[in-house]
Simulated assay, not measured.
Amino acid sequence: MASLPAEIVEQFICHLNEDPDRLKTLLSCSLVSQTWCAITRPFLYSRLALDFDENRTSLADVISASSHLRTYVHHLLITSAAPIVSALGDLPSLRSLQIRSSRGQSLTVNREFARNLWSLLSSRHLTSLELSDLDTFPARIFYHCLALQNLAIRHVTFEFPTSNSDQNEELVTSQLKERPVLKSLILSTQYREGSDTLHWLLGPLSPFDFSQLETFIGLDRCDLDRSYEAHCTFISHVAHSLKTVLIDPPTSSLTEDIQDPLGALEPKNLQKISSITVSVIQEPGDALSTLPFLIALLSGLPNPETLHEITLLCDLYEHAFRGFDFHSQGWKELDSLLLGFPNLKRVHLKCYDESDDQIAATLVSWFYDQLPRLVSRDILVIDYFPDLTYTKSMQQQLMG
């Protein structure tokens, strides 16, 4: 085996690199011979996970001591705010960076840790960044991400730059002349953090250019009108370039006697849309849902042929306690309307917060009765989950 041509060995290692248990396999391959070790090493160090809360610092020491190993690192996961990150030095080939709490709780980012991140974020190859469960994260760091294209923010509280901050405004102005063009934004929020973040992203000191944004996955867990309105404003701002969008109106905004902010979204601006996801509010015994909005939105699209997929997120939480009691308003109208979309490949119903198999079976039967045309076209897919998983699966597809 060790005498195989290097080109064949490299193809073999490249195939193994896609295996879920890649690390153990690659370590074994690196022990075959010096040739195998040299070929395996770039794959072995291409994806690193540093968890300082578990005192796993030896890997960071190895990377910091070898300049050529640092060039192999393409994907890096950091799961604590440890100052030792500075020991890594520059990672010139870094493409994606994940920073999150290892304990599932909000992690406070101190100034030293934030300062140590600057060299990583300023990499000209860094195109994907994911931030999860972080507190007091300095938003000014984004001014260093000049190559960023994909951004995922999940439950992050930012420190935003203000006119009274000690930030060098001249530096900010110069940085804004070379803003990265963001292609995808995934934003999962709690409380009021989402509205503040989106307000800042659309403001005069925004670090990003959204003129070519193709994907906006905005999952709003706030149940607050202010945050929901911020999501709607953002969608309207980037509608002309969107290809994929998730709209998640909170129940509170729809049940109160107020004007739905999404009503201001003009379908004619969605020139390129190919995938639409809408959270459908379905309360037992209540005729309230977002279906009327969805129908109005689909009816006004300027290019029906561009739409390939529709996903509806149905919350079944109340049905688990009260028994199945779905209403039918709007579903048959939707079924007829979708006949006018010639390239529609899939209508996906994702139902969550339901663990009762009997209710789930009733649900499938009910939908098949309401949507016979979609059933006959064989494009209706129904799934149900114990909890909402859509944004995580979308993030894996988008961020790699």
Rank of each mutant, 00 (worst) to 15 (best):
L50A: 03
T197Y: 05
S132D: 07
F326Q: 05
D196F: 12
P92T: 13
G194I: 09
S3W: 08
T157Y: 11
G194H: 09
S123T: 09
C314S: 04
R103F: 14
Y45W: 15
L398G: 00
S253A: 14
I258V: 14
N343K: 15
A82H: 06
D166T: 00
S393Q: 11
L388P: 00
R192T: 11
C351M: 11
L312M: 15
D383P: 04
I379D: 06
I310M: 14
P161F: 00
R47W: 06
F385G: 01
G89V: 11
L77P: 00
T57F: 13
R154G: 02
S163R: 15
G285N: 07
S184N: 07
T233Y: 01
R56I: 00
H74A: 10
T189Y: 06
L388T: 03
S30H: 09
L338P: 03
S299M: 03
H125V: 04
D383K: 08
I153A: 10
R56D: 06
S93K: 09
Y352K: 11
L94M: 12
E7V: 14
R100P: 00
F113W: 06
V62K: 13
G330D: 06
I141T: 04
Y317E: 08
L121P: 01
E130Q: 15
R124W: 08
L4D: 08
V32H: 12
R47G: 03
T244L: 08
V181H: 09
T311K: 10
A287K: 13
A49V: 08
Q329N: 12
S289F: 00
P267G: 04
F367L: 09
